[in-house]
Amino acid sequence: MKKASALNNLLSEIGDLYLFIIKFFKEGFKPRYEFAEFFRQCYYIGNKTLPLIAVTGFIIGLVVTIQSYPSLEVFGTESWMPSVVSVSLVRELVPVITALICAGKIASGIGAELGSMKVTEQIDAMEVSGTNPFKYLVVTRVFATTLMLPLLMILCDTISLYGAYIAVDMKQASTFHLFTSQIFIKLTFGDLIPSIIKSLFFGFAIGIIGCFKGYYTKNGTQGVGKAANTAVVSATFALFIIDLIAVQIADIFHIIT
């Protein structure tokens, strides 16, 4: 009985999320456009997440390279290190790590902020002052996360590759010029573009789930905590589902081309 009820709740929530997404596309492209709030959100999401992304990217690049070195050394293919590491970083690791960090920081932030606005009647206050709160709060945030995720990912790519260079230089003295030329032997736009497209979907998922959880918060302050928490969990789960689908599509694309 309990399992049936849980399944019922899950399906009901997926249905509500679907309607929320439909509403986003209906409202998102109609005037009035809230540009000021959109840029404020871009600043908040991009600028505030930048240091975390930068440090994590550097560490990931460094660690992945150091960890991969012994395996390549066994086969005497250490010179492939820049190509191998750069492809794995750009295609998979950096987009996923960037999205996971953003899911933790942004989805929970949006969930908590909108949740708190909901329980303190600020969203109702916006509505009675003649403002469409969905446009002002949801549309701007979702567009901002969708735009900022790929930008953060590209930045994280660059920093992680620099981290990889440091690690390569530690293991086998190399120049930056040699390292970059070895990277671009294998790394092409065909690797970068799918990960940018994937990041757009990651950004959309983080924004829409954070907003969905916050916008429909119930049960006072307890509900705010729950909204923040479930926003992170649901967004993280959605990221892996999107990644799974994206990998299949990218694979088909690679086979065709």
Binding site: M117, T120, Q122, A125, E127, V128, G130
Partner: peptide, 17 residues
């Protein structure tokens, strides 16, 4: 349009924090 003519004071004040 109607809401411009009708003000609402919330119990919780609902100031944008």
């Amino acid at each position: 349009e109607m809401r411009v003519k009708v003000g609402f004071l919330f119990q919780s004040n609902a100031l944008y924090d």
